[in-house]
């Protein structure tokens, strides 16, 4: 990963994109090989399936993980993220719509002020307004020197937001290069 870049990760279903992102996030231990991380660089992770507690409200979820992240004022941080992502704050998370749960999932990844964001198909269930807000967040992070890896099946997003593209097929890296070198023809071969 390079400082300030956005790396798009694509590949057919089952290629290993989610596993790779979970390994990079530290949520999984590699069975072989090593994941090297720069010390003290906070990493945010948006898993494909929301990682949150259903019986807690969005506010309680954010405050709990903010405390675990060591935030000094968990309540203030939670309130700020709730407002930013427009998530209903005081209903149990299991009552939220799929879109709202994904917003909360994204909001949780921003706790701890991450410098690297790992996004696993983050816009899959977001409405256009929320998608725009998410990419604004990503852009702001990159402008501040942060980096982003995002897995997607949306080739338009790839062309718009990725500086480089990595293609995974059956767990193997089959292409890694600038987005400009990656054409839609490749995509048709990959997803054929």
């Amino acid at each position: 990963m390079r400082v300030g870049e956005a790396l798009g990760l694509i590949g057919p279903n089952g290629a290993g994109k989610s596993t790779l992102l979970a390994l990079l996030a530290g949520a999984l231990e590699p069975s072989a090989g090593v994941v090297e991380r720069v010390d003290d660089v906070p990493v945010g992770w948006v898993p494909q399936r929301p990682a949150l507690y259903d019986r807690l409200t969005p506010r309680e979820n954010l405050e709990l993980f903010a405390r675990l992240e060591g935030e000094l004022d968990p309540a203030a941080v939670a309130a700020k993220l709730l407002a930013r992502f427009d998530v209903p704050s005081d209903r149990p998370a299991y009552t939220l719509s799929v879109g709202n749960r994904q917003r909360l999932n994204v909001a949780l990844s921003l706790l701890g002020d991450p410098r690297v964001l790992l996004l696993d198909e983050p816009t899959a269930s977001l409405d256009p307004g929320q998608r725009r807000r998410l990419w604004e967040t990503v852009t702001g992070l990159r402008e501040e020197g942060g980096s982003v890896v995002f897995a997607t099946q949306n080739l338009e997003e790839l062309e718009l937001y990725a500086d480089r593209v990595a293609v995974l097929q059956r767990g193997t890296l089959s292409f890694l290069g600038p987005t400009a070198d990656y054409g839609r023809l490749h995509a048709e071969e990959i997803f054929a």
Binding site: A25, G26, L28, P47, R49, L52, Y53
Partner: peptide
Amino acid sequence: DENAIGRLRRGLV
């Protein structure tokens, strides 16, 4: 089941 263990595992708990 709630997929929270991955988030916790990342150095939080």
